[in-house]
Simulated assay, not measured.
Amino acid sequence: MFLHILAHNLKYRVVQFSYCRSKETISRQFNDVLRAVMKVSKDYLNFQPCTLEGAEANKWRWFERCIGALDGTHIPVTVSPDERPRYRNRKGDVSTNVLAACGLDLRFIYVLPGWEGSAGDSRVLRDALRRQNKLEIPTGKYFLVDAGYTNGPRFLAPYRGTRYHLNEWIGNTPQSYKELFNLRHASARNAIERSFGILKKRWSILRTPSFFDIKTQIRIINACFVLHNFIRDEQQTDQLLEVQDLEFLSVVDEELVHQSREEVQNNVIDDITTIQATEEWTRFRDTLAMNMFANYKVRRNFA
């Protein structure tokens, strides 16, 4: 019954006819399962090393120290009339701004639901770095983020003012190191968009507002992320993942040359509470982008 409600966003009275149970029984069992899933959330929402092959591995080769991608997504919610102004996002919809980070294998590493839709992504990220159940990033590692975030230590953003989104590259080729960096950055960071797409396609309750109170809705959102990871762990093939493969990924260069870099320990974690642009991190991005472009030009000359 729990999975049925999440997958189809059904009300108790509809489930009542399918399972021949009272609304009281359905409500009690639903909340029992929800609490159980919340208890095991820490066991599933965590970082796990993975091995990629083929085109998926090629997309991440230049981002060797990267452990995944991070972004926010808006999920519709139902709130009281007094709270609607706070939860109304820039598109005018009532939603909660959910911060999530996923690994290279499309498993979610961290989730922070509950912020009002009017809150900006950077503000939500600052909270994620400071709260008790905070986002932890191993020393020397980083996430790929979009241009809405600051390009600072442990958060690698694309160049602003330069073509970025993958659909902008159809029929075009990079002409500078910034364009090539943005293309490969977008190709790799697309993992978080694919993860969100699979999540919302599987769980219909995330696509439209539900009848639950806001606290229960936040727990349901968290539970959907946990179930997403459970399915990724237990099911070797996922039909929804195949559907999410975008046609314009063919513009990604699959002949990237692997460049060795310094190995960094995975188990060392430093506290980081804010994101600030630094000259060192800016140089790191510029150096990485220029190395990409130099290698790209060499291969084109030999092609």
Rank of each mutant, 00 (worst) to 15 (best):
M1Q: 08
H4P: 02
H8M: 02
V15K: 10
Q16Y: 04
Q16L: 05
F17P: 01
R21W: 14
S22V: 07
S22L: 05
S22Q: 08
K23V: 07
I26M: 11
F30S: 06
F30C: 05
M38W: 02
K42C: 15
F47P: 05
L52D: 04
A55W: 04
A57L: 11
K59M: 03
R61G: 01
W62D: 10
R65K: 15
D71P: 06
V77N: 06
E83R: 11
R90I: 00
R90N: 00
D93Y: 12
V94C: 10
T96P: 05
T96W: 01
V98P: 14
R107T: 11
I109L: 09
V111W: 08
V111Q: 06
L112C: 10
A119P: 03
G120S: 14
V124E: 02
V124C: 04
R126T: 13
R131A: 05
Q132L: 15
K134E: 12
L135I: 15
T139A: 08
G140Q: 02
G140M: 04
D146G: 01
A147L: 01
G148A: 06
G148F: 00
R154Y: 00
A157T: 01
P158L: 04
R160C: 05
G161F: 14
T162K: 14
T162F: 12
N167Q: 15
W169S: 15
I170Y: 11
I170F: 11
G171M: 13
Y177R: 09
Y177L: 02
E179F: 13
F181E: 06
N182G: 07
H185I: 06
A186M: 09
S187M: 10
R194I: 04
G197W: 06
I198D: 01
K200Q: 15
K201D: 06
I205P: 00
T208L: 04
T208R: 10
P209K: 05
K215C: 02
K215P: 00
I221H: 03
C224L: 13
F225S: 12
V226S: 09
V226P: 09
L227M: 15
H228I: 05
Q235R: 09
Q236W: 08
D238H: 11
D238C: 10
L241C: 10
L241K: 05
E242G: 00
L246R: 14
F248Y: 12
D270S: 12
I272Y: 11
T273K: 12
T273C: 13
T273P: 04
T273M: 11
Q276S: 15
W281C: 03
R283L: 13
F284A: 02
R285F: 08
A289C: 10
M292N: 13
Y296R: 01
R300Y: 00
R300K: 07
N301S: 06
